[in-house]
Design a protein around this nucleic acid. Sequence first.
DNA 1: CGTCTATATGCATGATGATGTATATGCATA
DNA 2: TATGCATATACATCATCATGCATATAGACG
Lengths: 110, 110
Amino acid sequence: MHIDAFETLADPTRRRIVAALRLGERPVGEIVRQAGIHQSGVSRHLRILQDSGFVSVRPDGQRRLYALRPEPFRELEAWLADYRRLWEARLDRFGAALEQRRGANEEQET
Amino acid sequence: MHIDAFETLADPTRRRIVAALRLGERPVGEIVRQAGIHQSGVSRHLRILQDSGFVSVRPDGQRRLYALRPEPFRELEAWLADYRRLWEARLDRFGAALEQRRGANEEQET
DNA sequence: CGTCTATATGCATGATGATGTATATGCATA
DNA sequence: TATGCATATACATCATCATGCATATAGACG
């Protein structure tokens, strides 16, 4: 199972969970407090985050500690890189329009 | 109207449209060809992309030329920046998240 | 074992969203 | 004005999803 990173982050609750894990691994109960929704919802979000590679789990007694994984973030960075020219010191669209003159079309995805 | 960037990019068709605009502005008709869905759907996606700040429009005769805008990409980059520590040059220490368990202060080592 | 705590999952529901068809609007041109 | 092309929008439909409630699983501990 490898769910899309953007689709995963589309949900604001999931982004809140990700943000809650920014400083290190956390048990579910603590995440629930920051998420603002029911525990079952948090569990499901964590499952989605796990399936999309955003988090890893490890058991700790009767709890489960969730932590962020770097891969999806690198994936996002790679996606952004394709558009970096656009927002890096090139604010007009005339430059881009000029470059389009050559190599009119090509295949690209995601 | 300012729709969330992640929610906007969650749709693969919209990402295809954004990718089609990477090299410069395009009329709707040309985008339709690359989008793989009906023209009305493309128009709706373009509306969403416009509302979320991803694209700008300018009339050109009876057509409308859409082009990417840099702001949302900068926004995404800013969001990613908060997690950059996580995936930047931390491959050797996979337990980076593990060791900062709870209450451990996070400072820049090295 | 029985019980408590922590987390996950099945189910029903309400909301949102993507899509196609049909139609409307807008611009150009004869 | 009439006609045709390009794009936008109203409407209905189908699918997906986030959520809460109730319940199940799993570990800890008496």
